[in-house]
């Protein structure tokens, strides 16, 4: 048997051992996983960001403009010492400010306009004269009512009149369907992962399946 399979089996069993209770094998695997993840991410960031965007322009083509992000990046290291912490704030502000600026049109487009368009889009099929069944009409009406009522439920400054409260109650039912379906879907996807690990243990390791 290959050493790689044995290593994977050891760490898989060490993580599964937590089902019994917290134990030294699980804690060892947990700490190794954290270390590997951090090391993996740091190497990935160095290879995909720092090397092509900072070090190659700076040391390869002597691009002096690269000194600006270098200085800003290095200022983040000031955060390691408490009394110097404030020197990292301008670089942090650049990150947060530019992120906020980029996110406004992106959020409006992806989260608001596109979602609204997707909710209304099926009606255009009816408007275009396409023949659709009764079930299709019922379904798209349910979807539209769902979007509208959920939005009204989250509209906290709404007037507490009877019709509005009733509509927001309908929104709660749609939210419950969403939470239930998401829960079921999450459990199913985790079960798929579990089946994958069991297949590995019973197949690759023990050769039973």
């Amino acid at each position: 048997m290959e050493i790689s399979t044995l290593v994977a089996v050891f760490f898989t069993m060490a993580i599964f051992s937590f089902l019994y209770r917290d134990n030294p094998f699980y804690r060892l695997a947990e700490h190794v996983l954290i270390g590997l993840s951090v090391g993996f991410t740091l190497v990935l960031l160095f290879n995909s960001v720092l090397l092509p965007k900072l070090f190659q322009p700076l040391f390869g083509s002597h691009d002096l403009w690269s000194l600006i992000p270098l200085a800003l990046g290095l200022s983040m290291f000031a955060g390691l010492k408490k009394s110097w912490g404030s020197y990292s704030k301008p670089a942090l502000a650049l990150m947060i400010g530019s992120g906020a600026g980029v996110s406004i049109p992106a959020m409006m487009e992806a989260r608001v306009l596109r979602q609204m368009a997707s909710a209304i889009e099926p009606f255009s099929r009816m408007g275009a004269g396409e023949s659709v069944g009764l079930w299709f009409i019922v379904t798209i009406l349910i979807s539209l009512i769902g979007v509208a009522t959920v939005m009204i439920y989250f509209f906290y400054t709404r007037p507490e009149t009877k019709p509005v409260t009733f509509v927001s109650q309908v929104g709660i039912y749609f939210l419950m369907v969403f939470f239930g379906a998401t829960f079921g879907y999450t459990v199913t996807s985790r079960l798929t992962l579990l089946i994958g690990r069991l297949e590995f243990l019973l197949g690759d390791f023990l050769g039973l399946i």
Partner: peptide, 26 residues
Amino acid sequence: HPSVAAKRGILIGIGLGSVATALRVI
């Protein structure tokens, strides 16, 4: 359908909330 409808409502809310927060940051 019903689940996606509720998700859309939540996403639109998140989008508007994110825009408001981004404006507050700027």
